[in-house]
Design a protein around this nucleic acid. Sequence first.
DNA 1: AAAACGGGGTT
DNA 2: AACCCAGTTTT
Length: 301
Amino acid sequence: MSTAQRLHARTLGWYAEHRRDLPWRSSEVDAWGVLVSEVMLQQTPVARVEPVWRRWLDRWPTPADLAEASPADVVRAWDRLGYPRRALRLLDCARAVVDHHGGQVPRDAVDLLALPGIGAYTAAAVAAFAYGDRVPVLDTNVRRVLGRLLGAEALPPPTQTRAERHRAEAVLPEDAATSATWNVAVMELGALVCTARAPRCEACPLAADCAWRAAGFPADAHASRRHTQAWHGTDRQARGALMAVLRAHPDAPPPPDLLARAWPEGGQRDRALASLIADGLAEAVDGGHRLPTHRPPAATG
DNA sequence: AAAACGGGGTT
DNA sequence: AACCCAGTTTT
């Protein structure tokens, strides 16, 4: 048995025993359900996505259903998942699937990448998880696992490299069905065992093969180039505070003082509201601001 | 290549 | 108080 085959067997065996029963992994879930889950999971942890995903698909089971929704309803249903522009991109995505693909989520990589809010990761995830295609899926978990296992690195570099993509392709099982399970298994291993902070190597099926472990767990070589984003007092915090007020008043504008109470500094509040309007997340009306009741068609480019 | 973009649980 | 999370888009 080759090294690659041993890695595959051990990882798939571990996954069969330890995998979480996440709702979007059910065979009942179609490609649209998978796509919605992947967009929600962009930078948002599984635990917070799960209840929102269930409500979302219960309300809008198909792209055609979502395509008819108002942006105010969509942003409100997005709740506090964060990065609410994703909610509007998902609405645009539903419209594009209806308008350009007959209401069916496309399978081709070029078509998927052309959809709003779908980048390299999500396109690969939909192709692999929804359609069972043989494509490398390179999310933050997989990058970390492969970086440790094959590159002896504590953490992957800040931006994805060609070497990482080559490495992911090199270890991908030949068989399509096996490759699809491999992708989700490595991702799950990164989420549950090979974690960023405190990896549980004693529980890892690949510990004996791990280059990082063999090298004595060298420190993160890219630490100096990682900068933690400030949060308190930023425009992002201001936008979030204002959006929370707008979500609580989906139809009518909130009483004027509520926005001021949510973000007292007037200059920054005005700038934040202007940026929300520019993003299509808010609209100015007679009595102040509210969630947008209408969204213009996205530019198709 | 770097910055902008939320929010909350965990350490 | 940092760190981290199934990233994408814009500059």
